Amino acid sequence: MSSSEHIRGATGRLDFLIGVVAAVGALLVIFWLIPSQIEITSRSGQLSARVFPSLSAGIVGLFGLALMIKNRHHALKPAPHAGPRILIETLAWLVWAGAALLLLSTAGFIVAGALSSFAAMLLAGQRHRLLWCAMASILLPVAIQQLAWHAFYIQLP
């Protein structure tokens, strides 16, 4: 096995495991977290508060399943050990998530969405087109807010 085949096998195994985590996480959110935290809307004709979280979790689950299917041949191949790098990256994502939640409660959806989207793009490794990242980071929360308001009459914080 050549070096590039070994690296692809290890990367494929990591992608498979990421798909497993995403699919299991989506199932936990859909069948445990959402039912335990969001009440069912009692008024008929009103959109339930469970719709968007369930839709989001379903999409994450489908992407996880797609990753698992695409990388099923690499599931049992050994992966190189990159513990310190993975730990640092996990801590960076944890700090990002905490900062996004804090910012959401203090600055509102648009500011928190723009800053956390830009930080997520940087953490994910996108560093070549920073202007495009900044514009997308601003347009994404504005578009979501406008969609929520005009389509569903929901005022985001």
Score class of each variant (00 low, 15 high):
L102P: 04
G98N: 07
F52E: 00
A151F: 09
M1V: 11
L47Q: 06
G61Q: 03
W132M: 14
D15A: 10
I69L: 12
T90K: 10
L101R: 03
L156H: 01
I110V: 13
R43I: 10
A66C: 04
R50P: 05
V51K: 00
Q146R: 09
L123P: 00
P53H: 00
G125M: 06
P84T: 10
W96E: 04
R8Q: 14
A151M: 09
L94E: 09
I138W: 01
L147N: 04
L67V: 03
A92H: 07
Q37E: 12
G64P: 02
A75H: 13
W93C: 10
M121R: 00
L65N: 03
Y153W: 10
I18E: 03
G83K: 14
G64V: 08
S4D: 08
R8D: 12
S4T: 13
I30T: 11
T11W: 08
L122T: 04
G12P: 12
P80Q: 10
H150Q: 11
I59W: 02
A10C: 07
P141E: 01
F31T: 13
S2T: 08
L140G: 00
G61T: 02
R43C: 01
Y153A: 13
Q46K: 10
A114T: 08
G113D: 01
W132D: 14
A151I: 06
S56C: 11
W93Y: 14
H74T: 13
S3V: 09
F16Y: 15
Q46N: 10
V51R: 00
L27D: 05
G45R: 02
A26I: 05
S105G: 14
A10T: 12
P84M: 13
S56I: 05
F63H: 00
S137D: 03
L76F: 15
K70L: 12
A92Y: 11
L131H: 01
F109V: 05
I18T: 12
F63K: 01
T41S: 09
V21Y: 11
A120K: 00
S117M: 11
S36P: 07
W93S: 05
G83C: 13
F31S: 13
Q145I: 04
W32I: 15
I7Q: 14
K77S: 15
L147S: 13
G19N: 08
A92R: 09
A134T: 03
S56E: 00
L91M: 14
Y153M: 10
A23K: 11
R8A: 11
F109S: 06
I69Y: 08
K70I: 11
G98D: 06
H6L: 15
G19F: 09
